[in-house]
Amino acid sequence: DLSALRVEEVQNVINAMQKILECPICLELIKEPVSTKCDHIFCKFCMLKLLNQKKGPSQCPLCKNDITKRSLQESTRFSQLVEELLKIICAFQLDTGLEYANSYNFAKKENNSPEHLKDEVSIIQSMGYRNRAKRLLQSEPENPSLQETSLSVQLSNLGTVRTLRTKQRIQPQRTSVYIELGSDSSEDTVNKATYCSVGDQELLQITPQGTRDEISLDSAKKAACEFSETDVTNTEHHQPSNNDLNTTEKRAAERHPEKYQGSSVSNLHVEPCGTNTHASSLQHENSSLLLTKDRMNVEKAEF
């Protein structure tokens, strides 16, 4: 173990290094160091905050020279020094078990990766560091076993998940096959086929009936047209017969005018059967003409 005197000496050296690497504005270890034209180094955030307070150039807090945003430059070497100082402080805390008085939040800088452990060898070769390295080497064999167990647990979990997924996939297939086998029997399929065939026959029977009705309507229309044509021909046949009657009536009127007047009046009210309204109107006109002729003949006879 380190003596108290040596611990104090190391602590004083760390404090001196820390004062050199402090920012003059925030009085902390410089984060993202930036250098000016006057070779003074500050935190990048502190300098941008200072420049944004005034429009135009501002003055350096140490030498009062003008500073602009374009004049600022990043210093990589200074950032490396800060990183190495942080590593020294971490090693000091691990070796002594004491917390550094002016320690900052170094938890963000710590890294437990194997590459980081290899890099620590180049920091300080001390008894405390050696003991700590031995402890780490002793704890390393235990870690692979834990990793193997965790991997086995994960693989077993994956296997159970896969088996569950396969079961879920197989179950719908089985149910679907069961439904297909038990849903419709052979008799049901035959009945469905016969039902479809009967429906098709009914459709075939319905369509000819409609065509037959249309044919019957067409035949009825044709018969009505033929009947009207026969009526017209009958009226045409009746007209010459009426003319013959008129000639006979004229002759009778010349011989017996008194008797014919009474008979002509009675004939006005008689309509021949089986004739249309057109034929009756023609008869009325003929009878009126005959009456006028008879009157003329009677007057001539009187004179």
Rank of each mutant, 00 (worst) to 15 (best):
T230L: 03
T160S: 05
E83C: 06
E299S: 00
C90Q: 03
S3I: 02
D95T: 15
L164C: 13
S219R: 03
A224T: 05
A4W: 01
N102V: 00
I123G: 13
L137Q: 06
V121W: 01
N242T: 00
Q53K: 04
F78N: 06
D213K: 04
N267Y: 00
Q168I: 11
E32P: 12
S122E: 01
C225N: 09
Y100R: 15
L48G: 09
L245R: 14
D1P: 05
S152V: 00
I89M: 14
E8H: 10
L164M: 12
E99P: 06
E148G: 03
E258P: 11
P257M: 01
P172T: 14
S219D: 06
R255P: 02
N157D: 09
V34N: 12
R212T: 05
E32Q: 11
V13F: 03
Q138P: 06
L290R: 05
N267Q: 01
L86H: 02
N111I: 04
I206E: 15
L98M: 08
E22I: 02
E187Y: 00
S216L: 03
N267D: 06
V10C: 11
N267H: 14
E9N: 14
S197F: 04
D66Q: 06
E271K: 07
R251I: 02
H278D: 04
Q125M: 06
T275W: 00
S288I: 01
R135D: 04
L29A: 13
L21R: 15
E74R: 05
R6E: 08
E99I: 05
L291Q: 08
G159F: 01
R295V: 00
S145P: 06
Q154R: 02
L203I: 06
E32L: 09
K192S: 01
D244T: 14
G274P: 15
N65R: 02
C60E: 15
S241G: 00
M296I: 08
L117N: 05
C273N: 07
V34D: 14
C46N: 13
L72Y: 13
L291F: 00
K192V: 00
T149C: 05
N131L: 08
Q261Y: 01
K44T: 08
K259V: 08
L81V: 10
A193V: 00
L151E: 14
R6L: 05
P257E: 06
K108W: 14
H278V: 14
A301T: 07
D200A: 08
T230R: 04
E32Y: 09
R162K: 08
S79K: 13
K192D: 07
H256V: 09
H269G: 13
C26W: 15
L51D: 03
P33Q: 13
Q201L: 09
Q209V: 07
S186K: 04
D188I: 02
I41L: 07
L48W: 03
Q11H: 04
P24L: 14
F106Y: 02
A4N: 01
L62W: 12
S280R: 03
S185G: 14
T68D: 06
G128S: 06
L158Q: 14
A101L: 11
R77M: 07
I124F: 07
N65E: 15
D39T: 07
N267V: 11
Q147A: 09
H237I: 01
Q93I: 07
S145L: 07
K69A: 06
P272D: 13
R295W: 11
I67D: 02
E84C: 10
E140V: 09
V7S: 11
K64P: 15
E22D: 06
Q205V: 03
D231Y: 00
H116L: 01
L5C: 11
T275L: 15
F106P: 12
C23A: 15
H256T: 10
S150V: 01
H278E: 11
C46E: 12
S287R: 15
H269S: 03
A16Q: 12
C63T: 15
V265Q: 12
I25G: 04
Q154V: 00
Y260S: 13
S79H: 04
G97S: 12
Q168P: 07
N243G: 03
N105L: 12
N246A: 08
N131R: 10
S266P: 06
A224V: 08
I20L: 06
L62Q: 11
P144W: 08
R162L: 01
H284K: 13
K54I: 11
S150N: 06
T275Q: 05
V82I: 05
Q209P: 07
T211G: 02
V153A: 10
R212P: 01
P57G: 04
C38W: 15
F45T: 08
G262H: 11
Y104P: 15
K108H: 00
S75K: 14
S58Y: 11
P208A: 02
P208D: 14
P61I: 03
D294A: 14
S79D: 10
I41W: 12
R212M: 04
S228Y: 04
K250T: 03
E271P: 14
L137R: 07
S145Y: 01
G159S: 09
A107I: 02
N276T: 02
F78R: 13
P144M: 01
R255V: 05
L158D: 10
S266I: 10
Q11A: 12
H256N: 05
D39R: 06
T277N: 08
E142F: 04
R70D: 08
Q11N: 02
D39L: 02
E258C: 01
H40S: 11
L2K: 09
H284I: 09
E83F: 14
G199R: 10
Q171P: 13
N15H: 11
C26V: 15
V10I: 07
M17K: 15
R77E: 14
K64Q: 13
N267F: 11
Q18Y: 10
